[in-house]
Amino acid sequence: MTAAQITAIQPVQDAQDQTGVAPFGPKPRHVSPGRIGIYVFLVIAALFFLIPVYIMIVTSLKGMPEIRLGHLFSLPAEPTFQPWADAWLHACTGRDCNGLSPGFYNSLKITVPSVIISIICASINGYALTFWPYKGANLLFGLLVFGAFVPYQVVIYPLIIGLSSVGLFATLPGIIIVHTIFGMPILTLLFRNFYAALPVELFKAARVDGAGFWRIFFSIMLPMSVPITVVAIILQVTGIWNDFLFGIVFAGRSNWPMTVQLNNIVNTTTGVREYNVNMAATILTAAVPLIIYFVSGRWFVRGIAAGAVKG
């Protein structure tokens, strides 16, 4: 064999890197400075958010004398759950000293129906907008998208007038209606985009099979909507639970949600400022959205990524 023939047969020379090892098998991984930088940043960011949480938890487990010592970061010497019990049952807002618990139940009464009603409406909206385009559907959709960007403050006063005129201002149904209305744009957008990503043939096949508007919705679309419904539930539960503005304006004193009650407890001007109780109350109020995040984070990501449905 001549040299020319050899190169013709073996045209690819093994390239050798600086270490003198010919490439073979999996490519070796190198830790680049950029990657280290990213991790350092992530750790710092995590600490930044975790330190206040840490302070809140340790403070809520200390007695008042220990707090007065001023050692913000130290672990509680004699851990006590009394501040938690006080926050839940006895903390005072003005003259009432019933703790946060009434607020918790009010928040439940507001959140559960609001979430259910808004998601039902939004999924039907999204479905209709996607599969049953009627005259003006695009205009309606445009308005809805626009609605997602309207600042709340602008519409509060007109809404107060509107709800008062039908006798729903400062009532439980009133606040539920408000939350449902304000959830509509973003939720409809969410469901419409989800349905728009489904193959339209699915809808056509169901039409040929003789199914109508509701049959297709309940038998075909709804069973496929689980991932996006989970996303919607998370969005709505956290949004409505954390709401303060609508709650204080539209719910009425007897229905004030937990956030409003927390504010009243923390800002009470009479007596000593009980930091441990305040901290416990704050953690209790934040607990519901926190639990939702922890339990459903996996679902959330999956739902967001579930645009394309295989099969």
Partner: peptide
């Protein structure tokens, strides 16, 4: 569609996934 006496088969199969 259902009253036309037709059946239809699609490229993407369009089977109800659930």
């Amino acid at each position: 569609p259902k009253d036309r006496g037709i059946g239809m088969v699609f490229q993407s199969y369009a089977l109800y996934p659930q």
